[in-house]
Design a protein around this nucleic acid. Structure first.
Lengths: 341, 341
DNA sequence: CGTCAAGGGGCAATCGTTTACATTCTTGTT
DNA sequence: AACAAGAATGTAAACGATTGCCCCTTGACG
């Protein structure tokens, strides 16, 4: 038995489809008796509407698309959850896609979302330049706001964290702890966040007179953190501190240090970025930068909703203030012995 | 400027909309010259099709909906990622919803997915009985497969892990380590997984002659793990082992033990369930049960795809074999000192 | 030269809603 | 009592694609 349509409901209730539509949606008042009839008929038939037909007619889907580089990264997970919540509050549904850090896949997902007529898109672009074309195109088709990262050369809203301020917090904290040299472990990905964090690291270490021991680039993963730590250890001379561009990398570094018998924070200090839940549980617990991801999500959805309205506002760049969460990985013991072993 | 429609492309190429449709979709061959014309016209206009209109006409959306209790739980994150991949392979897109462990929200999401005419649904239901009505209804509307957990009394496909076998692995391992008493920390959620794990715990501890020191029920979170450990510690007499119904709980237990100065595995052994990535990084690394979530996802999507075909097969229950990942939290040192402090 | 088949293309119906406009039916006003 | 205003409902035209059916052209074969 095929699904009941509005026509079936209308026939059963003895009214026109227009009346059914109005009764069910409340778009215009109907008489109490008719409302009763229609409601009953709909219930009897188990009528649940056809969102597709509705969307076609109204040319709105009440749906927002979101594209993130990875679902597995807890930072994005948290962001997704916040956005989902905010979108839900606004009476819409979230369509989630993962670009798997691949600009080609990302472009594909964007095309797909546009074809599916989502009302707007929230995206954290994979790459600073390779993502530009697809993002620019999508932004031309419908409202789009970038979160966390952003591509260069596209005029669209962006909401994220102030990466420079974040690295100022980290470097100042390390310098206050007496650190004299630091290495950066980050990603080869040339997107805004990565680049701003790299630039911030260099600028603030210079400002505080810290030596830059090394800059190692891989990807945002635990595994890369392990490898990078391995490289630092193999080089023989460990810096006083290792600054990581995200918590996953930092967790990998911590694990490698533990395996190699290097004491943290005794021999080297380690910092992360994002404050994912597991950073509080590592050994030792990780000093990291907290992003206000919930506020970022709320603001992103607010901007999107605004863009759906009639009057187009100018694109807005909003950098939220980060905060430093100090834990044992930069603990009070400090770098007493400068060299391991 | 409004988005270009197939009509615009047809006009520009000097052919009918039917021909454009056929040229672009390849549903029927068109002459090379016309194909060329159409392709150029579409490119010129930046035509990208209207998925909604197409979906209405074909009554398929090439979209699969997925509902999970939480996006933040790494186990579901991994499952989502696997399903997204599998769905993508099948040429469809994934529509992800979080039910936030709330049966009411879950029902709402299911209604929404059905209204949006997704081709099928993959769901991990929140609750064993409270979710039944909504799941049963949705399963009546379209193909639906349950993953990980399942509700009672709905005839639909299910793919998950063999919870009884998993607890057999855990309990046998603990018994082999010389454990004589064990506590279970689980969730109050009465869903299939939780119940089967609880039953398995009781059955296999009985079989191996282990004393059940306590059964504590809360929710699947780190925080609850902490609290439960607190209760056990406060009770004065710690069991030889704490079996946790998932890794998040176990991580909380480990953290509480570390804080309280209780040695793991020296004073107590701890096991988890799911093998989330962070379980390898905890202090100490966690012994846990690995679920073949990728296989589960692939099988779920396969079943869904099969159900989309013409001939309806009988509902299938597939329990995948779990495996035990032994790490330091049940390490070789064993429970030498039975009582902490 | 006639017939037929096949390939290529167009016409128009269709999917299930929503909604502008027309129509009917009340009800109140003068 | 006639008429205007307003409320409730109906009619039918969209929305933008796909596709069954028909027509035309062309070439092959008898």
């Amino acid at each position: 038995m095929a699904r009941a349509t509005i026509r079936d409901v209308a026939d059963r209730a003895g009214v026109s489809t227009a009346t059914v539509s109005r009764a069910l949606s409340g778009a215009r008042p109907v008489s109490p008796s008719v409302l009763e009839q229609v409601t009953r008929a709909a219930a009897d038939l188990g009528y649940s509407g056809n969102g597709i037909a509705s969307a076609l007619r109204r040319s709105r889907t009440d749906t927002v698309g979101m594209v993130v580089p990875s679902i597995a990264n807890p930072f994005f997970t948290a962001l997704v959850e916040s956005v989902e919540h905010a979108v839900q509050q606004a009476g819409r549904q979230l369509f989630l896609c993962s670009s798997r850090s691949d600009p080609t896949l990302e472009a594909q997902r964007l095309r797909s979302l546009v074809a599916r007529q989502v009302d707007g898109i929230v995206i954290s672009p994979v790459h600073g330049s390779l993502s530009t074309e697809a993002v620019a195109w999508a932004a031309g088709e419908l409202p789009l706001v970038q979160v966390d990262r952003h591509v260069s050369g596209v005029t669209s809203d962006w909401v994220g964290v102030d990466d420079d301020a974040a690295l100022r917090l980290v470097v100042d904290h390390l310098a206050d702890r007496g650190v004299q040299s630091a290495a950066l472990v980050s990603s080869t990905l040339t997107n805004s966040s990565t680049e701003l964090r790299g630039a911030g690291f260099l600028a603030h270490t210079a400002r505080r007179g810290l030596a830059v021991a090394a800059v190692l680039l891989g990807d945002y993963s635990i595994e890369w953190g392990r490898q990078a730590a391995g490289q630092l250890l193999a080089a023989g001379s460990l810096p006083d501190a290792v600054v990581c561009a995200d918590d996953l990398i930092a967790l990998g570094v911590l694990q490698a240090c533990a395996t190699a018998g290097v004491a943290v924070p005794g021999d080297v200090l380690v910092t992360g970025f994002d404050d994912i839940p597991y950073s509080a549980l590592s050994n030792p617990p990780l000093t990291t930068v907290r992003q206000p991801q919930d506020e970022i999500a709320v603001e992103a959805v607010r901007l999107l909703t605004a863009a759906l309205g009639p009057d187009r506002e100018d694109p807005v760049h909003t950098a939220m203030a980060p905060s430093l969460v100090v834990r044992a990985s930069t603990g009070v013991s400090g770098p007493s012995g400068r060299r391991p072993r």
